[in-house]
Computed example of a mutant assay.
Amino acid sequence: MLEKLIVFVEEYSMEAALQQLLPKLLGDIEFQIIRFQCKDALLKCAPDRLQGYAAWLPESWRILVLVDRDDDDCVVLKSELEGMAAAAGLQTKSAVGQGEGFQVANRVAIEELEAWFFGDWEAVRAAYPRVPATVPEKAGFRDPDAIAGGTWEAMERVLKKAGYFGTGLRKLELARSVAAHMVIQRNRSRSFQAFARAVGAALA
């Protein structure tokens, strides 16, 4: 039985989104979000953090490491994360497959957090009602994880066109506003569903 989930994230907006999303996934189970200054800082510091946890991590605790793909190769990035956990002596979800007993799950958000928001457009519209309902039907937006030219930039363009964020996208405000309205089961982003499944596996 899961008693606590520890989540490593790379920046403020993911932390803000997860503060809203994790209670929807975990119910009353305790969680702790450890935020690093940026992706490079997470990748640099995570090995030592994981090594520290390996010495005392209770059996009922799990660690979730969550990073953006950005321009990295997803397979290479995931392999780097897996290697960190293995070097610390921690069992990863990928290593044990469908079996039980993993301690760390590594997940890559493709391409950025904003892909998750494109995956639940109803939540975006609940927070920003003037954005068109038809955006997910348009070419280039049908697959939230394959939006070209930068996901947050695409979100900024859509929101500006609807009359929001005229001086530039405020990512922290966006994350808090949209995540509050998100419904786990309806999200079309594959990377979001992989994240949700990892949390679900920790609960199992």
Rank of each mutant, 00 (worst) to 15 (best):
S189V: 10
A175Q: 02
A154Y: 04
K161W: 04
L169V: 01
F165P: 01
E173W: 12
L172R: 05
A154S: 01
G163T: 06
E153Y: 15
T151M: 15
Q185C: 04
G163Q: 09
K171D: 13
L172F: 08
A162G: 12
H181F: 06
A179C: 05
Y164G: 03
G150S: 12
I147C: 03
E156V: 12
S177R: 11
G168C: 04
E156T: 10
R157G: 09
G163N: 01
G163P: 05
G149A: 06
R170Y: 05
L169M: 13
K161A: 12
A162R: 02
A154V: 07
L174H: 01
L159C: 05
V178T: 09
L174S: 01
A154F: 06
I147N: 00
H181E: 13
L159W: 05
A179P: 03
V178E: 00
E173S: 14
G166N: 10
G163H: 06
A175N: 02
I184A: 15
V183T: 06
R186T: 15
V183S: 14
F192A: 14
L172W: 13
R176I: 12
A180C: 15
K160H: 07
L159A: 11
A175F: 00
W152L: 09
F165Y: 03
R190A: 02
K161F: 05
S191C: 01
S191M: 02
A175L: 10
R188L: 12
K171I: 08
R188M: 06
M155Q: 02
K161C: 10
G150H: 07
G166V: 05
G150W: 13
A148W: 07
S191K: 09
Q185P: 09
K160G: 01
G168K: 03
L172M: 01
T151L: 03
K161I: 04
L159Y: 02
S189K: 10
V183P: 01
N187S: 01
A179E: 08
G163L: 14
I184D: 15
V178S: 11
V158E: 12
A179F: 04
Y164A: 02
V183D: 06
Y164L: 01
E173M: 11
R186N: 13
G168I: 04
G168V: 08
H181L: 15
V178I: 13
M155E: 00
V178F: 11
V183K: 15
T151Q: 06
I184L: 07
V158G: 13
R157M: 14
M182D: 01
G166S: 02
R190M: 08
A148Q: 15
M182K: 00
A180I: 12
F165H: 05
W152C: 10
R176P: 07
A148G: 12
L174K: 10
W152G: 11
F192M: 00
R170M: 10
G149P: 09
R188D: 08
A148V: 14
G166P: 04
V183W: 07
